[in-house]
Design a protein around this nucleic acid. Sequence first.
DNA 1: ACCGGACATCGACATAGGTGAATACTCACA
DNA 2: TGTGAGTATTCACCTATGTCGATGTCCGGT
Lengths: 128, 128
Amino acid sequence: MSMSGSGACNPDDELACCTPLAREPMSAEQAAQVVPLLKALADPVRLRLMSMVLSHEGAEACVCDLLPAFDLSQPTISHHLKVLHESGLLNREKRGVWVYYQARPAAMEAMATLFTTAGLSLPVGAGA
Amino acid sequence: MSMSGSGACNPDDELACCTPLAREPMSAEQAAQVVPLLKALADPVRLRLMSMVLSHEGAEACVCDLLPAFDLSQPTISHHLKVLHESGLLNREKRGVWVYYQARPAAMEAMATLFTTAGLSLPVGAGA
DNA sequence: ACCGGACATCGACATAGGTGAATACTCACA
DNA sequence: TGTGAGTATTCACCTATGTCGATGTCCGGT
């Protein structure tokens, strides 16, 4: 808990969202902690960036790996990566001239937990 | 599968997002389908509305049940509910003078699947 | 038929946010 | 110590969006 350096907002282990939405009415404070993560993911470019990093070798990717996939300027991609990093979804690691972004499993886990309905009274027949 | 009536954008069973982010690099088209759901959830009021409906009896709630929890005008809440409905997260059902919103399990499941990392090569030790 | 309550729609406003051009920063290499 | 390549930051622009007030619509009761 010391080498965090320039680390993201969330100090690693205390990622907010850990209770399922369906468990109990979420308070305004809880929502305020989770929403930044959802906001960060609620953009087509950033969602694809996350997916690209996650599915890449070792769940990490260099910026130069990500750039060619988009028709956007380099500063724009850099901006989106910054948003993902500051929201706690991606770690940033500089190796030489290159910067590698790594997915944070804790954040993914938190998101998955949010939408969990296992063991909760959701009428699966509610269908249409 | 016929009584959809005024139904939401997504015709019930063909909700987009069904593949985990970490499975493979998401295409722009896939992202365009999932992002509206995330955008709908990426607001503190709407996230709380979802949570309130989900955790309510039978995963449904009347507008009059939801209004008092916020310091916002009735049109504003109505607007947020419309966004959740049109994105396919909530169903809308009018009973007499009251309108009941119901959570759509399929949408919740889709979201949960998005963030699944089970069986995928995520270095859980990536920690910080 | 009138009236009142529950909810939706419309119009307007202010702020947030995605984008690119220009520029600054940092490191490897000659 | 220049020089160039890989990223980040700043500034400005334009659109998207959250909010409210006013108004409209639908329904039940009297």
